[in-house]
Design a protein around this nucleic acid. Structure first.
Lengths: 203, 203
DNA sequence: GTCTATATTAAGATAGAC
DNA sequence: GTCTATCTTAATATAGAC
């Protein structure tokens, strides 16, 4: 990362983003003031406006960056062709990535309604791209006869719901390791999709 | 037609709650002002304070009433003893009830962090009571050997996650009827719990 | 019960000195 | 890059007339 010319101290820019993110996650975008953010960063309010034109842009940039990072992280992964392996891989990727970026995930989900309509459209497109990854894995497995579901669309949403819920209770120091949680979820999702059962087998 | 002396309109009290609920659901508690609520109700700001001591109490009362209604609606149902039937019943109850009170459900989930700590504790207790219902059904089925899960606690959370997600996409005029959705979810959850498979059967 | 008017506080954002 | 000072607007809440 290139630093700004003429800056001696540790750059303030990343601090602003970090503290804004944490405060938004904790109290919600609308409930956090620029003054609060400035206080956490350790500067006066006016200074913040050297790093963002306004509060809305601060939120938008946080979400945009998070979703772009998420998408690029997935696409940089070696691509598996078998839908069953690909699904297992996606579950692991999703849980690992999301559990280490809890604040960004939380804000990107909770604060959609705080975006201006223009920014909302942009962010929703990115979110849609991510959900499409799972949708396509499921539909490929479905047409290959590897998965058997009554309604692919609803199943996708249900799986997404299961995975999203994890963030509300996962704690690194909790009873189960992340590896164990991943395995449990891979199992439950395999059950829902009837992985391994042939289309013509009786249920 | 005048109902009460000096009052031409329908009683204001329920209107205040209704409009506050809808606005909180749409924009979030912190983003909604008392002026906005007053405007929707059709009164001046000062008038609102005849119906609530402050904005926080307005939010708290909405959540409290919603959760108390939910709990009492469940407890008024005829109680089934068989865990399998009880679970199916709970899924149906949950989805029906939640789909017809979308705003209240949404606010009660999203605005937990907007409550004062005292109010939060109260509301969390009610929420906990509701989640305990599902937990107990699962653990009863588990000990009766009717369900087979690798980790009951995580399974409960996953099922809750699945059910909660529905509210984010369900529309009464959508492709599937509520009855169809209920059936699909009963099926998926039965799959996760391996309902009908004996504990000693091979998977 | 509802209104108008107002007290008080705090918000987002900008200007200009250093 | 950061600060102080300030503009402007809007927030919650209250008081007192009708």
């Amino acid at each position: 990362m290139a630093r700004t010319l003429g800056s001696y101290a540790q750059s303030t820019a990343p601090k602003v983003t970090e503290h804004a993110l944490r405060l938004f996650a904790q109290h919600g975008y609308a409930a956090v003031s620029m003054r609060q953010i400035a206080k956490e960063v350790g500067v006066q309010v006016g200074t913040l406006y050297n790093y963002t034109p306004d509060k809305q842009t601060l939120l938008f940039d946080i979400m945009k960056r998070h979703l772009e990072d998420l998408l690029s992280a997935w696409s940089l992964r070696p691509h598996k062709t078998d839908p069953v392996l690909c699904l297992r891989d996606f579950i692991e990727f999703h849980l690992r990535y999301h559990m280490q970026k809890q604040d960004a995930v939380f804000v990107s989900y909770m604060e959609l309604r705080s975006l201006t309509s223009e920014n909302f459209i942009f962010v929703e497109k990115l979110r849609g791209q991510y959900e499409t990854i799972l949708e396509e894995i499921l539909s490929q497995g479905q047409s290959a006869g590897l998965f058997l579901v009554s309604d692919p669309k609803v199943t996708t949403l249900a799986v997404i719901g299961m995975l999203k819920e994890v963030i509300t209770w996962y704690k690194p120091e909790g009873r189960l390791t992340l590896e164990e949680i991943i395995e449990i979820y891979q199992g439950m999702i395999a059950d829902i999709l009837h992985v391994g059962l042939n289309k013509n087998d009786p249920l």
